[in-house]
Design a protein around this nucleic acid. Structure first.
Lengths: 224, 224
DNA sequence: GATAGTTTCATACAACTGTTTGAATTGCAA
DNA sequence: TTGCAATTCAAACAGTTGTATGAAACTATC
């Protein structure tokens, strides 16, 4: 009963500290000091440090996945069980980008924690991410319905690139700001989402299997 | 003189171990055991563990950057000081992808080390990566020459997405193979490079500032 | 209000970490 | 060979880490 207070104090303190200083140099002693609880409380309530981190990540991760699937479902219902490709990709990258970017989310502990998790890749989190495959397959299935003629490999590459752009933007937002000297506006989340979706759609609809024959305007270059 | 043997034995052993098991759980004691040298040798020859890691990464990193610039220069000379955009992007992502992917490079210690470095992001490596901005600016400059009318922000986004796709492919190649059940061929490096370049060029030439007005075939979706 | 179960606490544990030390050894020049 | 520097070595250092323990405090039920 009253143990819930301790439990959630640990969770909150851990998320805050990990978000601010990374998984690398935050110890259990830092966490319990921040949470004003005893050191042994972590192992009592969570079993181990890794399980604490896992619970932290699973919570946020499930929320994002739920949001994604809701958006996908909404788009499919709107189109009568057949969502257009840009809506599918929007459902895929929108929640992640909205959750991690933007001026309102800037101070959000959850956002900063998820950014850390996408940068540092500590074992317990990696284990969870590896189970994300089933979730992504639902988007592949939707994409297949939206582009029936398309080669399967192209769909996988398209989804892969969409995730690449959204994750890399989250992960390297500081570097991009610095490189572009502020000319890339990392606060306009909607514009970023549109841009990522737009490029992803082009990747999927641009040329037929660009890797094999490259019939588009861009010709493959010779090696070396 | 003969100390060079110790020095390079440490470098080789460290690179091998880091490549295989990651920075997280390889200790100096593991390294000196693998290299058959004394524990103190690391601090004697490199000053600290972090400086050892830094030297390891700098060496490989400089080689890649040199290769990139050579390819860029070659492309510019070929075009009379004005390389086409796809050649520029090819010079940017080619060396990295070629260095980390492909069946011949599969067993390469250097490749596996660089993949680790791109996944784990340990402090000494992060510090070095932050100095990579100047290097990237040279590619922005070349891109500006190739696409004079283009808005600067679009160029930065294009370069950013090109790096996103190439790095994410390297970092998540296992996941992509698993997700696609082998339908994405991670061994055909040339095809991957062509695909990344092709999509990047589309991102740069596709629609005029797709984020602002989205005049292309893809229309921005409403929020939420 | 005694009892049983849960939660907290101070403390100890055992292992591991990167780094330092100072003596021993080696290599090379004079 | 002597002398001096560079290198190697075993050992210890000083600190940190996550986890375990067993007693104490609390809570709720009968």
């Amino acid at each position: 009963m009253s143990s819930d207070r301790t439990r959630s104090a640990i969770l909150a303190a851990a998320e805050r500290l990990y978000a601010d200083r990374g998984f690398g140099d935050v110890t259990l002693r830092d966490i319990v000091a921040e949470a004003n609880v005893n050191l042994a409380a972590v192992n009592y309530h969570f079993g181990s440090k890794d399980e604490l981190i896992a619970e932290l990540f699973v919570t946020r991760s499930l929320a994002t996945n739920r949001e994604r699937l809701n958006e996908l479902k909404a788009a499919e219902e709107k189109g009568g069980g057949h969502a257009p490709i840009d809506a599918i990709l929007h459902a895929l990258v929108g929640p992640t980008l909205r959750g991690c970017l933007g001026p309102d989310r800037e101070g959000s502990t959850a956002a900063r924690f998820m950014i850390r998790a996408s940068i540092e890749s500590v074992p317990p989190i990696r284990r969870i991410k590896n189970r994300e495959v089933d979730h992504l397959r639902k988007f592949i299935a939707a994409m297949r319905r939206a582009m029936p003629g398309r080669d399967d490999a192209d769909l996988y590459w398209g989804l892969h690139f969409a995730l690449a752009m959204s994750h890399h933007t989250i992960r390297e937002k500081e570097r991009l700001t610095k490189l572009s000297e502020g000319r890339c506006d990392l606060n306009d989340v909607q514009a970023i989402i549109d841009r990522v979706v737009s490029v992803s759609v082009m990747a999927l609809t641009g040329g037929e299997t660009p890797a094999k024959k490259a019939p588009g305007k861009v010709v493959a270059r010779e090696a070396r």
